[in-house]
Simulated assay, not measured.
Amino acid sequence: MSDYQQFLAERDKIDYFIEKGFRIKNVEENLEGAFLLLEKSAGADKQEETLHIKHADSRKYFSSLLIRQLQKEK
C-alpha cells in the first residue's frame, strides 16, 4: 500500500466513526503511532472503539478534528 493510500484508509476510518456520532475521548502517542480512543454515548449505552493511527498526516487530521470538537464544547 502506498503512503498516500495508507493515509486515505486511516482518514476514512476516522471519518466513519465521527459520522456515526463518536467523539475523540483520549489520544495516546508512542513511537508506533497514535492510539485514538473514540466514544459514543447513547443514553445508558456507551460504545468505545480504538484506532491505531500510524501515518503522520492522519495524526494531523485527527488533531484538527479534536480542536474543532473542543471548540464546540465551549
Results as ranks from 00 to 15, higher is better:
1 M>V: 14
2 S>A: 12
2 S>K: 09
2 S>Y: 11
3 D>G: 06
3 D>F: 06
4 Y>W: 14
4 Y>S: 13
4 Y>M: 13
4 Y>R: 10
7 F>S: 02
7 F>M: 02
7 F>E: 01
9 A>T: 15
10 E>Q: 10
11 R>S: 05
11 R>N: 07
11 R>G: 05
11 R>L: 02
13 K>C: 07
13 K>R: 12
14 I>E: 03
15 D>L: 08
15 D>H: 04
15 D>P: 01
16 Y>R: 15
16 Y>D: 05
16 Y>A: 09
16 Y>P: 00
17 F>L: 08
17 F>E: 07
18 I>K: 07
20 K>L: 10
21 G>P: 04
22 F>K: 00
22 F>M: 01
23 R>M: 08
24 I>R: 09
24 I>K: 09
24 I>F: 02
24 I>A: 03
24 I>M: 03
25 K>H: 14
26 N>E: 13
27 V>R: 08
28 E>T: 13
28 E>M: 10
28 E>F: 14
29 E>V: 11
29 E>H: 05
30 N>T: 01
30 N>L: 00
30 N>C: 00
32 E>L: 09
32 E>H: 08
34 A>H: 02
34 A>D: 02
35 F>T: 14
35 F>E: 13
35 F>W: 15
36 L>T: 05
36 L>I: 02
37 L>F: 11
39 E>H: 08
39 E>D: 01
39 E>L: 08
40 K>V: 06
40 K>D: 04
41 S>N: 14
43 G>L: 04
43 G>N: 08
43 G>W: 05
45 D>P: 00
46 K>M: 11
46 K>N: 10
49 E>V: 15
49 E>P: 06
49 E>R: 13
50 T>A: 04
50 T>Q: 08
53 I>F: 00
54 K>Q: 15
55 H>Q: 08
56 A>S: 07
57 D>C: 05
57 D>L: 14
57 D>G: 10
57 D>I: 03
58 S>R: 00
58 S>D: 00
58 S>L: 00
59 R>Y: 01
59 R>H: 03
60 K>M: 03
60 K>G: 04
61 Y>T: 06
62 F>S: 03
64 S>K: 12
64 S>I: 10
64 S>P: 00
65 L>N: 02
65 L>A: 01
66 L>M: 04
67 I>H: 07
67 I>V: 14
67 I>W: 03
67 I>G: 03
68 R>S: 05
68 R>E: 04
69 Q>N: 04
69 Q>H: 04
69 Q>D: 02
70 L>Y: 07
71 Q>S: 13
71 Q>P: 01
71 Q>G: 05
72 K>I: 09
72 K>S: 10
72 K>F: 05
73 E>I: 12
74 K>S: 09
74 K>A: 10
74 K>T: 10
74 K>F: 10
74 K>R: 13
